[in-house]
Simulated assay, not measured.
Amino acid sequence: MPRNLDLTALRSFVAVADTGGVTKASGFLNLTQSAVSMQLKRLEESLGASLFNRSARSLALTGAGDQLLGYARRMIELNDEVIGRMSDSAFEGELVLGVPHDIVYPAIPRVLQAFASEFPRMRVNLVSSFTRNLKAMFARGECDFILTTEDGCDPGGETLIRRPLVWVGAPGGAAWRGRPVRVAFGAHCIFRSGALRALDAADIAWELAVESDSDRAIEAIVSADLAIHAMIAGSEPPHTEVIAHGGALPDLGQQRINLYMSDLARGEVPQRFAELVRQHYLLA
C-alpha cells in the first residue's frame, strides 16, 4: 500500500533546514519546539532515514536530508498553488513587521496602505519596539521583517538609507545650553550610549532627566524644555525641533535604517512587501 508524506511535517523540515535550528523554525511556524521536533521524528521514521546530523552544534542536513529538501520544497509549492487556485486564497495570510517607534512615520503608514491595496486579504501585524528587542524577536523567528536603526548592518541585513542623528529639544528651547545638560533617553534606546559618549568626549557634563521606556514620557519632558534627546533627522515628533546649536553640542554622526527579511519569507507576497518598504523609505 502506498505511503503518504505529511505536508505539515515537510513544512517543519524545510523551516528547520532554512533557519538552522528548531527554536527559530518553531517561532516562524507558530508551533512549540517539541511539536516541531516530534514532526521531524515522525518524518524520519516514515522515511527510515536520518535527515539531520545532530552531533554538530547546529543542525546540519545529512545526505538524505539534502535529497529530500528539493522534493519537499516542490511538494509544498505545488500544494499551496492548488489550494490557492481552488480556494481563491493564494494571497491570504499574515506578515509580522517590527519597526522602532521613531521611524514608523512617515513611511510605514504609506507602506501598509499600498500593501493593503494590492493584497487586501493579507494582514500585517505591526510590532513597535526598540531595535535590540526587535533583533532578538527576529532571531527567535517571531517577525518576518524588521527595520532597525544601527551604526552598522549585520550579515543578512540590507541598508535602506543613511541619515544624520541629531539633537532635538523644545521649539525655541534653552535646555541644551544648561550645564550639566539634561538628557532624556529610554534605558534600551540604541542611541543612548553613543550620544552620552559623544558628550563625554566633548567634555560636556550631563545628567539624565528621566529614566523611562515610555516614548510619550520622553517626548513630554523634551517638549517642556526640561531635557534634550537624540533622534534620526526627520523623525522628530510634534512639539520638538532639531536644535540649532551651532557646534555647541557634539556631532552624532549617521545612522543606518536597515531591513532584515526572514529566510522563510518567500514568494511573491513577501518579496512585494519588501519592495514597498524599500521604495517608501527611499522616498520618505
Rank of each mutant, 00 (worst) to 15 (best):
P171C: 04
A17F: 00
G98V: 03
L68V: 03
R132I: 05
G141L: 03
K135M: 07
F145M: 12
A107D: 00
L95S: 03
D225Q: 08
L40P: 06
P155K: 05
G48H: 14
G63D: 12
Q279S: 15
M75E: 08
F28W: 07
E275L: 07
E268D: 13
L276P: 12
G186H: 02
A224V: 08
E241C: 11
A174G: 10
T240E: 02
V181H: 06
G63V: 13
I228P: 13
L196G: 11
V210Q: 03
R256N: 11
G186M: 00
S235T: 14
Q271W: 12
G194R: 13
M38E: 09
R163H: 03
C189R: 07
A35N: 11
I232Q: 08
N30Y: 06
T19A: 05
M38V: 04
L196A: 00
G48A: 11
G157P: 10
F191L: 15
L208S: 08
P180Q: 15
P171V: 05
S212E: 00
A72E: 06
I221F: 11
R162G: 03
A274H: 04
G247P: 10
L112P: 14
S262A: 04
E45N: 11
M137Y: 11
A15E: 10
L160Q: 01
N30R: 12
A139G: 07
S193W: 09
R54H: 02
L61H: 13
